[in-house]
Design a protein around this nucleic acid. Structure first.
Length: 542
RNA sequence: GGCCGAGUACCCAAGUGGCCUAAGGGAACGGAUUGCAAAUCCGUGAUUCGUGGGUUCAAAUCCCACCUCGGCCUCCA
């Protein structure tokens, strides 16, 4: 198996992944997750899904991964540095927005949620995030159903954060300032700025007017960042030796990563905007609190997604959440592929055309899987459970050596020699991903293999190879529209029209059959006449 | 203003000194199929890599300048 190499933001070089725990793993991986004061948008999901692709790639090479992703439920202030209450808690803002959404009908008014309760708001959006994430195949979100500790919430980790603050004060890296807040002293950590390339001098120049003079004056250095903010008026507050208040927002990741994965971890990921200040500050806190030579060995950052060539923004009307797109008929598979197929270190351009391109690719892979399934069933003499007639003649199957479960009982001498195109493509696919997650080349390897006619006798081995590739791509199992299910009336109407059309065609009344087809189209339904009858999907409209 | 990344066909996108007269997918066009479509299958497609210079036997790939886009510079995936 080739080793996974990825670009390490910390060094600017390609790093071979060697788990701290040894070759057998597990590799420890922490991903900065969402702050749940609103629905996650597709840009958020690009960074989460790229982390997922990396995690699945490592697993493809045979190394298990322990992946943790936080869900931030502490509101934090819209302006964290302002003490006089001019900044507002993000959860409070979210509560107001939620009330407005209910009034305008965007969210069902009967959604039982108290907009004045920050934890209820956080739970509401956390659940919506988890729904979207599972639909998109974010593995950690699927695993967290069985083990919630894999997606920790900072409000449950306040004690550990306070322990860390104490440790930092004791070691001389943090101090209580005249304004009552606890700050980290950046001058006490020589490597501060190493991750982002920011020097303390540059930072001083770049103050940008966002830091109030009052608090700047209380700090020892302009770059010092907050660890604890005493604030009796904050929506969420906890008791502490520094007064009731709330933790600095960098602290949660340091505390949870250490608590769940260890003081040193293999990989830490996030969006490119996390590099500074968030990850820079995490490194400073973690290394100083734990007195370790490194925090994360490899830092993995995904560049931002742009939409139709422009920065995504609500005012431009190119701002999409995953659920917006699902409601329009986009399959989770197509969305997943569209936002992960471009290399993670370039700005990906999300387009509706691209989404359609991805859907076509996935449909073709899916058909290949179906054909292989049918061949396997035919070879083993098992009747196809789906009652579909075989789509492809199975005369190429020469040896009844396989069973339907795909487990080989073959004892042929050339058992290990790849024979079919997918099996031959698998090492190229794996190699491409191991070279800094080259998705485009991996996908090309799969596409080329799918285009080759498979004359090999080993359908089950071909299918196994396809499933291996899909274990990273994660698309075959989620290639269905979310929007379709649950509307029985609509489905009945569609099926009735399809039957009307079929009857008209049998009578050679083509004018009537075309009318039925047009009517379906106006309902947003696209039909496909297949060998086994007519199927339909919702057309994707934007 | 400082620092950093990127510009490859109609669109998405790989390739980072010779195997590139540039991968893969989509669109478009032509053919097969279809009552006609859709879907599917087959075929066609950049002498050229933002612009202008330079280095080299050799450049999309290295260097310089310029243009455009994106990111960070204490909210942000």
């Amino acid at each position: 198996m080739p080793a996974v190499h990825i670009h390490n933001t910390l060094t600017g070089e390609l790093a071979e992944l060697k788990p701290i725990a040894g070759a057998a793993g597990p590799a420890t991986f922490y991903t900065c997750g969402p702050t749940v004061y609103d629905d996650a948008h597709i840009g958020n999901f690009r960074s989460f899904l790229n982390a997922d692709i990396l995690r699945r790639t490592i697993e493809l090479t045979g190394t298990p991964v322990r992946h943790v992703m936080n869900i931030t439920d502490v509101g934090h202030m819209t302006d964290d540095t302002n003490a006089d209450g001019a900044g507002e808690d993000k959860m409070a803002v979210a509560g107001r927005r939620l009330l407005e959404a209910k009034k305008s009908g965007k969210i069902h008014a009967d959604v039982a949620i108290d907009a004045n309760d920050p934890m209820a708001i956080a739970d509401f959006y956390a659940n919506r995030f988890l729904e979207d994430a599972r639909l998109l195949g974010l593995k950690v979100a699927i695993e967290a159903q069985g083990d919630p500790s894999l997606m920790p919430r900072p409000t449950k980790w306040i004690k550990q954060m306070l322990d860390m603050i104490k440790q930092l004060i004791d070691r001389g890296h943090a101090y209580v300032a005249s304004d009552g807040a606890v700050y980290f002293n950046v001058k006490s950590f020589a490597d501060y700025g190493k991750l982002s390339g920011n020097t303390l001098e540059n930072l001083r120049e770049g103050e940008g007017g966002r830091i109030s003079a009052q608090h700047q004056a209380a700090k020892k250095n302009p770059g010092d960042f907050m660890l604890w903010k005493p604030d009796r008026h904050h929506v969420l507050k906890w008791d502490s030796p520094y007064g009731a208040g709330y933790p600095g927002w960098h602290l949660e990741c340091s505390a949870m990563a250490a608590g769940l994965l260890g003081a040193e971890i293999d990989i830490h990921s996030g969006g490119e905007d996390n590099i500074f200040p968030h990850h820079e500050c995490e490194i400073a806190q973690s290394r100083c609190a734990h007195n370790k030579p490194s925090f994360a060995r490899v830092w993995f950052h995904t560049r931002h997604l742009i939409v139709e060539g422009e920065k995504m923004s609500k005012s431009k009307g190119n701002f999409f959440t995953a659920r917006d797109l699902f409601a329009k008929g986009v399959t989770p598979a197509a969305l997943r592929l569209e936002i992960t197929r471009t290399h993670y270190r370039t700005n990906a351009n999300f387009t509706m055309q691209g989404l359609a391109d991805c859907q076509r690719m996935i449909d073709r892979w899916s058909r290949t899987a179906d054909v292989l399934q049918v061949k396997i069933a035919a070879a083993s003499g098992t009747p196809n459970s789906k009652s579909n007639p075989p789509l492809v003649a199975s005369q190429s199957i020469t040896a009844p050596e396989n069973n339907a479960s795909g487990i080989s009982t073959n004892t042929n001498a050339n058992h290990n020699a790849p024979t079919g195109p997918l099996e031959i493509a698998l090492p190229r696919f794996t190699q491409a991903l191991c070279e800094d997650l080259n998705m485009a080349r991996a996908i090309a390897a799969l596409n080329e293999a799918v285009a080759v006619e498979d004359n090999s006798a080993c359908a089950h081995r071909e299918l196994a190879a396809l499933h291996k590739m899909n274990s990273v791509l994660g698309v075959l199992e989620r290639n269905t529209q979310v929007a379709n299910s649950g509307d029985a009336d609509f489905e009945a109407k569609v099926n009735a029209l399809i039957e009307v059309r079929a009857a008209a065609r049998r009578n050679k009344d083509f004018a009537a059959s075309d009318r039925a087809r047009d009517e379906l189209l106006s309902l947003g339904v696209q039909i496909k006449d297949g060998a086994t009858g007519t199927t339909w999907t919702r057309t994707v409209r934007v």
